[in-house]
């Protein structure tokens, strides 16, 4: 039995009453929040020997992972012919912004002790922090223009503005690569490889059109 009716033109119309789509968004919201909740619980129960470092790593990694997941929305939409997934795009993107913001705040407040002069020096002296900050500023711009009002107001320019996300993700991965020791290169390399696959998919699709 189907939960959906099909109109004359073959477009599916959601049936009133039971709707899987309604559950999807809150479910994904809770899943996306889990790493943060677990990190806070870890700090509260002294699970981390160096909690500031652990928080920095967890939020940084999840910021990048959320960005990559956000970039997967369009491919999933087309490869699995699952149109409803597009409804998650904004929320996933905002979660990426949430994790990178907590990451930055952890660094600024807990690691640097809100010593703005030290922080500024670190941003200038360490290129991995420089690219990290640039990436976050870009994500901030995208986050504040992610609402419906901005989409309407910016019109066509909205799409070209938001395609900058690819550059920002790349900067985020570079930030990670430049930060780790030689022995820890595996994880950022996996992200870079995944990012490359996403780019290739986009490129192929563009050429086919």
């Amino acid at each position: 039995m189907s939960f959906r009716a099909v109109s004359a033109k073959g477009v599916t119309i959601p049936q009133p009453g039971f709707n899987k789509g309604k559950l999807l968004k809150p479910a994904v919201f809770i899943v996306c929040l889990l790493p943060f909740v677990m990190a806070v619980a870890g700090v509260a129960t002294s699970r981390f020997v160096d909690p500031v470092e652990s928080l920095l790593h967890i939020t940084g990694e999840w910021g990048l992972r959320m960005l990559l997941i956000t970039l997967c929305v369009t491919p999933i939409q087309f490869i699995f012919k699952w149109a409803a997934v597009a409804k998650l795009r904004r929320m996933l993107g905002l979660f990426a912004f949430f994790y990178t913001t907590v990451h930055l705040a952890t660094w600024l407040v807990l690691d640097q002790g809100l010593n703005l002069r030290d922080a500024f020096e670190s941003i200038i002296d360490n290129k991995y922090i420089t690219v990290g900050i640039i990436s976050w500023i870009g994500l901030f711009v995208l986050a504040v223009t992610s609402n419906r009002f901005s989409v309407r107001k910016l019109g066509r320019r909205w799409k070209s503005l938001h395609s900058w996300v690819y550059v920002l993700v790349l900067l985020g991965i570079v930030h990670f690569i430049w930060q780790v020791k030689a022995s820890e290169i595996v994880e950022p390399s996996v992200y870079l490889g995944f990012f490359a696959v996403l780019l290739i998919w986009r490129f192929v699709r563009m050429v086919k059109r």
Partner: peptide, 21 residues
Amino acid sequence: RWSQAKERRLDADSSGFSALF
């Protein structure tokens, strides 16, 4: 890649949320 001017002391006083600050 980082300054060596300061250090974070990990001792018996640094546990739970207080360790963050």
